[in-house]
Design a protein around this nucleic acid. Sequence first.
DNA 1: ACCTTCACG
DNA 2: GACGTACGTGAAGGTG
Length: 937
Amino acid sequence: MAFGKGSHLHLIDGSAFIFRAYHALPPLTRKSDGLPVGAVQGFCNLLWNEISGGTTNKSKPTHIAVIFDASSITFRNEIYDLYKANRPELPEDLRPQFPLTREATRAFNVSCIEMEGFEADDIIATYARLATEAGGSATIVSSDKDLMQLVGPGVDMWDPMKSKTLAEAEVFEKFGVGPDRVVDVQSLAGDSVDNVPGAPGIGLKTAALLINEYGDLDTLLARAEEIKQPKRRQTLIEHAEQIRISRRLVTLSRDVPVEDTLDSLECRTPESEALLDFLAKMEFRTLTRRISEKLGVEAPAIAEPASAAPKAEKAAAPAEIEHPPFDADKYECVRDMNALSVWIARIMDKGFVAVDTETTSLDEMRAELVGISLSVTPGEACYIPLNHVQGADDLFGSANRLDGQIDPEQALAALKPMLEDASILKIGQNIKYDAKIFARRGINVAPFDDTMLMSYAMFSGLHNHGMDELSETYLNHKPIPIKPLLGSGKTARTFDKVGIEDATKYAAEDADITLRLWQSLRPRLHRERVTNVYETLERPLVPVLAQMEMHGIRVDRQTLSRMSSAFAQKMAGLEAEIHDLAGETFNVGSPKQLGEVLFDKLGLQGGKKGKTGAYSTGADILEDLATEHELPGRVLDWRQLSKLKSTYTDALQDHINPETGRVHTSYQQTGANTGRLASTDPNLQNIPIRTEEGRRIREAFVASEGHKLVSLDYSQIELRILAHIADIPALKQAFRDGHDIHAMTASEMFGVPLDQMTPEVRRQAKAINFGVIYGISGFGLARNLRIPRAEAQAFIDTYFERFPGIRDYMDKTIEFAKAHAYVETLFGRRIHTPEINAKGPGAGFARRGAINAPIQGTAADIIRRAMTRIPQAIEGLPAKMLLQVHDELVFEVEESAVDDTIARVKAVMEGAHEPAVEIDVPLIVDAGVGDNWAQAH
DNA sequence: ACCTTCACG
DNA sequence: GACGTACGTGAAGGTG
């Protein structure tokens, strides 16, 4: 039937449908494999109600279509590049459901329309116009306020959730103006959801008032001078351009070059077989029954899960019941392109895949890819060997690539579109590793989930987050150990020497485990209330860290080498002196031998210690002994040089990558319980700075030609957070006034006026300030300050008297920890404190940890937020972020761009807590520039 | 594999 | 009343 007079078109806002279904319904997964399908089910319900007439009182359609958003980039981004820029990321269990809703629409035999470069709203606007022009009418099935501008003669809206028609009266109620002026009001009021700027300070109410007074937006802007209220007048004059841009953003385009004609959208009866097949595939039992009854055909059978265990038992151990047993013999070895194509097709159909890579090294910058494993269904996984070579027994030790493996280039070319496909979720365990392996081969893995990070977000402080541990804890399965395959010590070999059959069992199981972990952990994120932590603090950091690690930092070998020699010489001199003073030669580096020399031979005072019964010879002991004898002082000097040489000047040289000439650390995102990062291989977070000799090692960290190193660090961030969390007015005011916080503390405590402050008094106050952050004790402070314990306790008492809020904070935090067995940062990160209610000495550690974790953890969260925002903020500048050292970020920047980079990064860092959290104290970032790290810091 | 020591925030 | 104590890390070298 041709569309014309009497025809009625229903335009369904598909994306809105999906989101409403997703948020309105509890998370639901397909029984057989855990695929999230809740939103799909809600979508199908709504769609079925639409086409079957349902329980609605609206007019029945003669024509119908579902409109989707094809992409997030549209012509509006050209008008305003921040359009929709602050949209939160899609929930990870919603993303794979998008392609399924398209499939569902087609299964219902309803036209499914989307167009690259246009939002669904514009397509809807266009069809609404076409419908009325053809003499018919249209109903927009949505409750989105952005569509309300379309309401008018022949066009109304229908809110399917509230079963309510939205016509002119409802629009007037919402906006205070009729549909024809909705755009004007929106342009003024802006929209925080879509990031439409509007006019600052003007909301819906004021906007409607102004439009009603002046008639329309153009008149208002032209006559802005006449507005009586000075602030309003100024805002409109100053932001006229921004308001006009906003209008272009909110105005829907009614002439999108749509391809489907109105006629082609005529309502069609669903093909019952195709529809029921789809519903059965989704395992929607109720819906399948309802629809098959209505269509008068028999419902297809849907297999029930293998075990129909009672509910209580199921809740106790869901993983064991719903998952098939592990069976390494069932894993497939993919040896040709045909088999690989089948796997890729399965993945494209599913919308997600667990991925794992096998390589020749744990160092991603040197590792060669050996094989890839994939899994989309528990118990089913494959391994794709790519670079296995003959075993090590080969006569010349030469690597002969084994037959029966796909050409690596060909395999990667086939996998690349899938790995980069925005609708396919890639699941990994520590996926930063695999992402770097792929990135080195030009493949940008996205989007992704990481089971290690999920575990960290939920269980930090409870256990570690390695795959073996997670598998045993949450899947009750001990993975195949890697040790027997790789050997150890002299006989150790790399994974490419492992036989392909053994490799398949091991590697495919890793993908299988990762998939099952994802299915087990992902739904728990919501229940544990840490989805936000995972999605804003953990997942987005992965590509940022990967980039930093791959860039690495330039280290000058010559500088280090010269230092090593100088240290060696000095050490030799000191060693001779020490032997002379001792009257015998011994290994100065052996605490045991040194203890015997000091305490047995020389008879110095200072007894045994430690559970091993050995003499303690730590720096603090030796410093005390130094007043009695010359030898301990020499040993201290020797130790310092020994440390610098072995840990830094020697070791760092070995870490210079021969290909890049740079040092590539590896950041462990789950290394520290508090949310801090840890740096390994090498650790670049503990490069010396406190002594002059050590500090010079930083001269070896240099910028490349034409560049500078730029260092930006938060000033006193933990004390600022303490002042905020514990709510200490005096401390907060001192930070706001930019005062010296330690001097201020000293002045408050000891009554010394600031202008008479001595360095010694200030030093003591500083120690107390830090002590507070660490969960102060009289003993600890006494040892740190080397004062009698009673004196230290008196300091603490005074401190608590002067700042009673601190004591309150400590008490409340410990109380909270005892009640919940965890503590939280300002951003909701949880750090579990399982020992908090224990007896014994463990409880003491747990108490101090509980006091410290929210402070240290909040600081860690803040710099993480900054780091995830920085790549965007410095986009286009010749600047790279290289290192993070807890409260410091180091960049390498072309000289001409140094000032710009500092300005942008500083702004991001100082505002990193916003908009999630308000802090009553300003965050201050200091910057330094130089040719090397010593100058820059 | 564990302990001690010491480098950093 | 005794116990053992600052918080969070990683690397190197000695020892058993």
